[in-house]
Design a protein around this nucleic acid. Sequence first.
DNA 1: TTCAAGATAAACATAC
DNA 2: AGTATGTTTATCTTGA
Length: 275
Amino acid sequence: MGPVMPPSKKPEVSGISVASASMSYLYQTGSLSRALQEAEELDLVLPVHLALPLAPLPGGAAKPEKGTATPGMEDEELTNLNWLHESKNLLNSFGDPVLRSVSPVGGEGGGTRGDGDHDDTPPSPSMVGGDLPYDAQRNPNCKPPYSFSCLIFMAIEDAPSKRLPVKEIYNWILEHFPYFANAPTGWKNSVRHNLSLNKCFKKVDKDRSQSIGKGSLWCVDPEYRQNLIQALKKTPYHPHAQVFSTPPTSPQAYQSLNRVKSDFIHFWNQAASRV
DNA sequence: TTCAAGATAAACATAC
DNA sequence: AGTATGTTTATCTTGA
């Protein structure tokens, strides 16, 4: 089981570790990866995206160009995270065919809304394009690149019964994306708003006998399940995200980026070895 | 420039 | 009565 982070416990790992562990968890739980593999069969060549909830680097950046893989990237490029988003199919970049059988869920480029700050306060959504360099050690709670519909979908898919009450959806999100533990409470409103408004989710009335708490169970409408899978695989760039393509401005940030890359490659190899 | 999608906030109703 | 849940509307940002 991956990182089970009690919501009340402030994460002490870096943002990238949290992200990798979350992905690792999703792989191990199986159902979601199976869902994604289903989509893989439907899809032709889907881009591979990385779930790296990183804070933006200063200056922001443009959206990555599509379909520009960067094989054979050299270490001197570590200062530039273009490799993350330019290499939309990282598996191809790594030249390992077996890796193509797994498809990580994740955001295009993994950029987040500018949540990077250097103190211990929760990342501020208002800090679009923060002025500080990304530092994985000090920004454990970067906003995940997934839309709320993707988060909800992941939560429901991860449940054995494939249906969850709102509260459990909250809990799943909190466990896997500690960012929300310190985020303003409005995100719960957003979850509910999404459940209500998004036709992909359906309310299921509980049995009277099992009706312990308030509310209903929520499930994915089978009619729209593939849509959600596709959306997850293609996780659009977070609407408010910035891509971090600007080189780091400090030695610390440089080292941090090196860690990001090596951690991710390590994770990727681990994921491949589990296939 | 326009449009669609998504995030966010808020008001309100309903159920427990 | 207070809280959680669910619905709806409005506004804003971003990318296409």
